[in-house]
């Protein structure tokens, strides 16, 4: 699945226009707790979260994630968008709640990671 497909499936807004949307996403993780995210290694993953602060980008950076989706209709903080763009990471936002957003991506074939 590409970032562009993630955007379409979630009917999401794109906040980082300069990022390559054809990058592949191989796995996904949905959580508001960053240490839970850090417990599961994923390859080229997308992070779905309701958390809206710079540590979301830091966490994604440590995990080599390629895309952040802010759920529940929140407007991503400017700082998040700027930090992500600098790192070549996409930031999307969707009005969908966490469960529905994860469910839609799962339905389209995306899966979670594995415990190390």
């Amino acid at each position: 699945m590409t970032i562009s497909q993630v955007r379409d499936i979630l009917n999401a807004r794109l906040h980082t226009p300069d990022v390559d949307l054809e990058r592949q996403v191989h796995a996904a993780c949905g959580s508001d707790m960053m240490s839970d995210v850090l417990a599961y290694v994923k390859d080229q993953a997308v992070l779905l979260t309701g958390l809206n602060n710079p540590q979301v980008v830091r966490t994604a950076e440590m995990m080599d994630m390629v895309c952040i989706v802010v759920v529940r209709g929140k407007q991503p903080q400017e700082q998040i968008v700027a930090m992500a763009a600098q790192r070549g990471m996409a930031v999307l936002s969707t009005d969908l709640p966490m469960f529905s957003a994860c469910g839609l991506l799962y339905q389209h074939g995306l899966r979670g990671g594995e415990m190390p």
Binding site: M33, M34, D36, A39, Q55, P116
Partner: peptide, 18 residues
Amino acid sequence: VRSLGFGAGMGLPNMKRY
């Protein structure tokens, strides 16, 4: 701290795990 996304009680276990 929890409202900022930390305090799940996974910090030290993750450090050991990795």
